[in-house]
Nucleic acid binder design. Structure first.
Lengths: 149, 149
DNA sequence: AGTAATGTTGACAAATTTAGTCGGGTATTC
DNA sequence: GAATACCCGACTAAATTTGTCAACATTACT
């Protein structure tokens, strides 16, 4: 069970946008290059993110995309939900409206899926793009450089 | 991101086998009927489980399948691993041998995938078929009936 | 005004995976 | 030897994934 490239590319793109938050729009081309994503494909993905209200676009020259909200208000869950649909191992726990299976009043495997779903959500609901950005800074600018001097 | 029917059917089948543990083989037909799985398809799935060493078969009349080990020694993780491959959101954390992405020495999204992987495994490694069986008994034979009298 | 840069949209399609089906085998019991 | 059951490999329809492409719309800059 592996996420599709949609979710993987999409989160990378959002992360890139997060790094650039507050500094004006970034063109798709740059995002695609930096994160090794086929530009034409990313076009489709970012359209999904736009419709989901996570990014907005600025058309024309010097245009590009930017995040609507600050990175600490965007969770990994929101991004993945938009691109992959509900992150759950089975439909019966992904959608509260989904029909229960009719094997018995309650199906035991369902409770397994539910536990998995909850544990995934514990992680992705808690993790924001800001957390990712901080981790990036921590990893790539360790104690060796002085930020201001 | 939803498991395929392989994993879902497979776990149901193993659960059924677990319920019957110690009582001789069950034919595929019965498992398929009880759990609403196309019999021909289940044939394929159980072949995978057999090759993975989780069940064994008894050929001929009165034959069928049985679990090799007691239900408390079979985890949900083992079953799903056999049928779905590693349960992880991305290849780079599914397989320790998988190539790291070459974006940077360390990729931040990777650490997100790793956290998800770990949280899934916390659940599925801890959950055995025995746990499922106990839950089933608890659900379907509550306080209203007397087990022995 | 014109042009280059950029997002927008919709159509297309190859490759892969999923979810089975089917038919003819083989082993075992009665 | 007949009935029961597993065993195996081939086949396939449908869906999904992972893109590509072309034409168009909008804006900044000169």
């Amino acid at each position: 069970m592996i996420l599709s490239t949609r979710g993987r590319y999409g989160l990378k793109a959002m992360f890139e946008l997060g790094l650039h938050y507050g500094k004006g729009p970034i063109p798709l081309k740059i995002i695609a290059e930096r994160q090794c994503i086929p530009e034409n494909y990313l076009e489709q993905l970012i359209a999904i993110l736009r419709k989901a209200g996570l990014v907005k676009s600025v058309r024309g020259a010097q245009g590009g995309y930017l995040m609507l909200r600050p990175p600490d208000q965007v969770t990994v869950a929101q991004v993945l939900l938009a691109l992959e649909g509900p992150l759950a191992p089975a439909e019966c726990v992904a959608d509260p409206e989904a029909p229960r299976c009719r094997l018995a009043d309650e199906c035991v495997t369902r409770s397994v899926w539910e536990k998995i779903r909850v544990s995934i959500h514990d992680v992705i609901d808690a993790m924001t793009l800001q957390h990712m950005i901080e981790e990036q800074l921590h990893l790539h600018a360790p104690t060796s450089k002085h930020p201001k001097e």
